[in-house]
């Protein structure tokens, strides 16, 4: 029986060396280790052995059995590896072919600029508020201390929806129109920005449009000073155009602020050395601003002796054009997909 077992094992070694597939391997396992397999048959014949022989042969049978099992496992692993290697070889791809298109849309460049500004202002404690495009004349002009005879009220400069005296309704010419609304609704202290659409009777060309966009800022509180206005706007300019940006303030005139100023930023294109973008001045005019005129505060029932504040307005279309080097305002309104899709990058 011992010889029989050895022979079986020899036969197994012989056959397993010839096996070349997992299927053949399975057949071998059944042939040797299965219920009707050769080793099983031998084990069944053990009953006929003597008490002395039984443990010896049993030990041998178990050894051979586990050898066969190990042999099968080793061979299986080898074959599986071989099969995988072959498969991997077949599956080689050209990694230089282009990726599958997952189309993502684009922000409109103007909305991108608005969003960036909003985020900066929110970080400085401003709330974002809105007001109507179609507005009472009083909010657009009267409450802003605009003289009754001022030319900007003319039909040739401002679009009107209703010209009934004292009830004039117009398309707001400036987001400043929301100043009085916000002050009346919110009271003081207040810290808001108002992005929005404004209208003026200009024919459309490369730099003008009857519809354009502004963002207005308004801060009123006790102890607000002109240095706060400067500090805030300087910080904002640095956030928008980079830490090295310098600002300068020039005296100017607006009816709803006193003192009034215009703020220039050092040219982001040339850093202030002078180039085409800044027309060789090194500076780019960015916004108008000033300390809220006491008449504006009074009109809104706020005591200008106790409260002071500042306001500013930035032209957004021009800013988007400057930021991205867009040379014609009309491109912003054309919505040519080849234009829009250039603004995919999260900048």
């Amino acid at each position: 029986m011992k010889e029989q077992l050895n022979t079986i094992y020899q036969e197994f070694l012989d056959e397993i060396s010839k096996a070349s597939s997992l299927e053949e391997l399975e057949k071998l396992r059944v042939a040797y280790l299965g219920k009707k397999g050769k080793i099983t048959a031998v084990m069944k014949g053990m009953k006929s052995l003597s008490k002395e022989e039984r443990p010896v042969i049993g030990q041998l049978a178990n050894d051979i059995r586990s050898n066969i099992e190990n042999g099968l496992t080793d061979k299986r692993e080898a074959l599986e590896k071989e099969r995988l290697d072959k498969k991997l070889k077949e599956e080689v791809i050209d990694v230089t072919l282009p990726g599958k298109k997952q189309k993502r849309g684009s922000y409109h460049p103007l909305n991108k600029v608005i969003k960036d500004l909003e985020d900066i202002f929110i970080g400085m404690g401003f709330k974002i508020v809105d007001g109507p495009d179609i507005e009472w004349s009083k909010y657009n002009f009267d409450y802003l201390n605009m003289p009754p005879e001022h030319s900007s009220r003319d039909l040739s400069e401002t679009f009107y929806v209703d010209t009934t005296p004292d009830q004039e309704i117009l398309l707001r010419t400036q987001t400043s129109s929301v100043q009085a609304r916000a002050l009346q609704e919110n009271g003081v202290p207040i810290r808001v920005v108002v992005p929005g659409r404004v209208y003026r009777a200009d024919e459309i060309d490369a730099t003008h449009s009857p519809v354009f966009h502004q963002i207005e800022g308004l801060v009123v509180d006790e102890n607000i000073s002109m240095s706060d206005l400067k500090g805030t706007l300087d910080l904002i300019a640095k956030k928008i155009f980079g830490e090295d940006t310098k600002t300068r303030f020039r005296p100017h005139q607006f009816y709803f602020t006193e003192p009034s100023a215009e703020m220039d930023v050092s040219c982001f294109n040339c850093g202030g050395k002078g180039c085409r973008v800044c027309q060789n001045t090194g500076w780019i005019e960015l916004l108008g601003c000033g300390m809220v005129h006491p008449n504006v505060l009074k009109q809104c029932g706020i005591d200008p002796e106790k409260y002071s504040g500042y306001a500013f307005g930035i032209g957004l279309d021009r800013m988007a054009m400057m930021k991205y080097g867009i040379n014609d305002l009309r491109l912003l309104f054309d919505n040519d997909l080849r234009f829009l899709e250039q603004f995919k990058v999260e900048d």
Binding site: E118, F121, R191, N223, L235, R250, P251
Partner: peptide, 27 residues
């Protein structure tokens, strides 16, 4: 105030940030 400021120089006025209460900006 504007007359004084412009002769003193707008650009000589310091840069400060509003003091006092903190406000939370939000949408």
């Amino acid at each position: 105030a504007e007359e004084v400021a412009r002769l003193y120089g707008y650009n000589n006025i310091p840069l400060t940030i509003m003091s006092g209460d903190t406000y939370i900006g939000e949408r």
